[in-house]
Simulated scan of single mutants.
Amino acid sequence: MINFNGTLTENPQFTAYNRGMLYGDAVFETIRYTGGKLTFWEDHYFRLMASMRILRMEIPMHFTLENLEEELLKVIEAETFQNKAASIRLTVTRNEGGKYLPEDNGVGFYAFAKELKNPFFILNEESYEVELYKDHYVNADLISTLKTANKIIHVTGSIYAEENDYANCLLLNNNKAVVEALNGNLFLVKGNVIKTPSLEDGCLRGIIRKQLIEMLKKLEDYTVEEASISPFELQKADELFITNAIVGIQPITKYRKKTYTNKVAKDLLGKLNAQARLAK
């Protein structure tokens, strides 16, 4: 069941002139639902609003925190996921009309949900090997930090990973710095220092990234840095892990000849679950 501009339907009526389809002129959020609420919903909402402003989309008066939450919960109820865990994708597209230059900066939205197996973030300790994806590069700019519908580098990178039996790939920016994974932000652990690429490098402004940085700043056991990561640092690290809103924290077990532990990832995952239960 899909919520298409406030109406629940199994067959939303998209036309050939949909700007998300024609130009990738859309932004989206993928949100975890568990325990009867949208996890880190306020962070998702404000990131969505910021993205729409940056892309010069007009924000409707009814796109309030409460109203959009209600629209997403309609999908949960329609799918009878109220007592289950689910992921919800909310996509906002600019209205039809125009070519590169829009005729209308107003927006519409649609949302759908998929059931998840686990109500909490669970640490996956199975083999998880990654490699660099170097066919295309992420631009180190503001647009790259947004969750737009233009993710062709991530699509081709995912195909490359599957063809070469990797669980994931790490993306580089045009300065040859490591930016992120195909499906989330990257964190590197060396001793008690935890490092993640800065937004200036073009990495996604991730929700779990934000939560972990805020958490780490309050912990005496770790020092957190937002700074560029070179490919050479990867093999010197004690741990590497990926974060996103659905999985939480995914440890990397191998990159080339280097294998990694997951002690810090395991410690942080417990804290992240506790933070998720308390967050709005």
Rank of each mutant, 00 (worst) to 15 (best):
Q82R: 11
T34G: 15
V193R: 09
I122N: 12
Y133M: 02
F109V: 04
V92M: 13
N5I: 08
T253F: 13
E239M: 11
L146T: 01
K258F: 14
A78V: 03
D141V: 03
L72Y: 01
M21Y: 04
F120I: 13
E79N: 10
K99D: 00
T39G: 06
A113D: 11
G270E: 05
M21I: 04
E66I: 00
Y260D: 11
D141Q: 06
F241D: 11
G202D: 08
M1Y: 10
E163L: 15
A227S: 12
V179E: 02
L68A: 09
L269N: 06
T259S: 15
V130D: 03
I88Y: 01
K257A: 13
I207Q: 04
M57V: 10
L219S: 07
V264N: 06
G270P: 05
M215V: 07
A265W: 04
E79F: 06
F120K: 15
N3T: 03
L171V: 02
K236C: 13
I59C: 11
T64E: 01
Y33N: 02
V224E: 05
Y222W: 04
K271D: 02
R89N: 09
T64N: 05
M49S: 06
K99Y: 07
M49R: 05
Y17I: 00
Y166C: 02
K37E: 10
E69W: 05
E226D: 11
K257Y: 15
N164R: 14
G97L: 09
Q211N: 13
I2A: 05
N168P: 09
F81G: 02
A245K: 01
V75H: 00
P197N: 04
N168W: 05
S230K: 14
K271W: 01
I153H: 07
A113R: 11
L186T: 00
G157K: 01
R94A: 03
E214K: 12
L188F: 06
I59M: 12
H136W: 07
A279G: 10
D135S: 14
I229T: 06
Q235L: 14
Y110I: 01
G248L: 07
S127Q: 15
M49E: 04
T30D: 11
P231H: 10
K117N: 14
F46N: 12
V264M: 12
K117D: 15
R53L: 15
N164W: 07
C169K: 05
N262A: 14
G184A: 14
E233K: 06
E42T: 12
S198W: 00
